[in-house]
Design a protein around this nucleic acid. Structure first.
Lengths: 202, 202
DNA sequence: CATTTTTCCTATCAGTTGATAGCCTCTCGG
DNA sequence: CCGAGAGGCTATCAACTGATAGGAAAAATG
């Protein structure tokens, strides 16, 4: 069912159930023997994106290591995972679709994801490893950079997600670190953490 | 007509012409005595966003000063301007709306905007002031951060756009500078350039 | 005041939307 | 061989979409 990447390209409202059905090779009413409604299709896609992401940030918070290294590893794992998805998460978070509809649970998941990410950044600020930047702002910056990466790659999965993921992680950590000389060690420590974070999403 | 910020909140497809008409206090068919089609409304909003942005980046390229200072000033002016708009540019660039429809001209404007921005970053890389980062990647990062800022502020104009604008500009320049000790002088030089860049958009 | 022009209205259109009802056709355990 | 059930189909629905036609009202012009 993941072929419903049309949501991403044209947005939730811009994609009809007939479009989706045609993309998966069935007729429109047949969709309703798999999902009770159009919203449910979006909810399933959102879940497939949010739940692994939540598992990753939880893992990053539980691991040992400096906050910068853990954030770097989380970013690498997150961006790699999102760029590998067969669909494109852009359209999911653009509209106020999340707020307006009966997607309460997905909105809650996203909020929790944001909270935990903000907390990890906050650890870095408290320890002095990061500049005294507002953790919420930094979290927003990460969201923006990640969505942009998905936009840039287009509708198909990226051939080399790890490359882009590293670039984004480096960019963010470089902007946040109080002492840039720590970038090298952070990258090194991150590389060791990435597998643990990535595998947290089953 | 700028009250059509509904496009931003619900996306182009998610907003009906009746919604727009109701928001501005007229009936739906009356819209068509102001605009020939729904696309034309979006085109007008896109123009109002893109043309000043294009004027700003041209000004930043023409000014004297180090690339970092000019990029910093451009970012401050850009983000301030976008956050001050009475509508929310988010939805404009999310869908493939730009590609799919008869918005060729707006797509061209956006491409030119990207090219010029990339060129300014490239100047910084060539001069050694910036790290040897791919200018296109940096430009994408800027786009992502800017759109995220609009998302965060919500549908209404920001009360204090300059604050957010400075934060974003600092974030980007910090991530790009080869020598972070240059951040202070860059900020200072940028402050002197901002008025010239901002006023370029008439 | 008369007239012209601009702006808005009501009425209506054909096409598309998400969704439901009811029938058909495989597959497979017994 | 058979009955069950999962998954597909056609046909159809009411609601809504963007857009057009033609007339009324209001504002500007003389």
């Amino acid at each position: 069912m993941e072929a419903s990447r049309l949501f991403a390209a044209r947005g939730f409202h811009g994609t009809s159930t007939r479009d989706i059905a045609a993309a998966v090779g069935i007729r429109q009413p047949t969709l309703y023997s798999h999902f009770p409604s159009k919203h449910a299709i979006l909810a399933a896609l959102l879940d497939a994106d949010l739940r692994p992401a939540l598992a990753r940030v939880r893992a990053a918070l539980d691991l040992d290591g400096s906050p910068a290294a853990r954030l770097h590893a989380l970013l690498v794992a997150d961006v790699s995972a999102i760029l590998s998805l067969p669909y494109d998460v852009r359209g999911f978070y653009n509209d106020e679709v999340l707020e307006l509809l009966e997607l309460d649970e997905q909105a809650r998941l996203r909020e929790e994801l944001h909270d935990l990410t903000t907390r990890l950044i906050g650890l870095g600020v408290e320890s002095g490893e990061f500049l005294a930047e507002d953790p919420s702002f930094a979290r927003g910056a990460i969201t923006g950079l990640t969505l942009q990466a998905v936009s840039d790659r287009g509708p198909d999965p990226s051939p080399d997600p790890a490359h882009t993921a590293l670039r984004i992680a480096d960019f963010v950590v470089r902007a946040l670190l109080a002492d840039r000389r720590r970038l090298g060690p952070v990258q090194k420590a991150s590389a060791a953490l990435v597998p643990a974070v990535a595998s947290a999403a089953e």
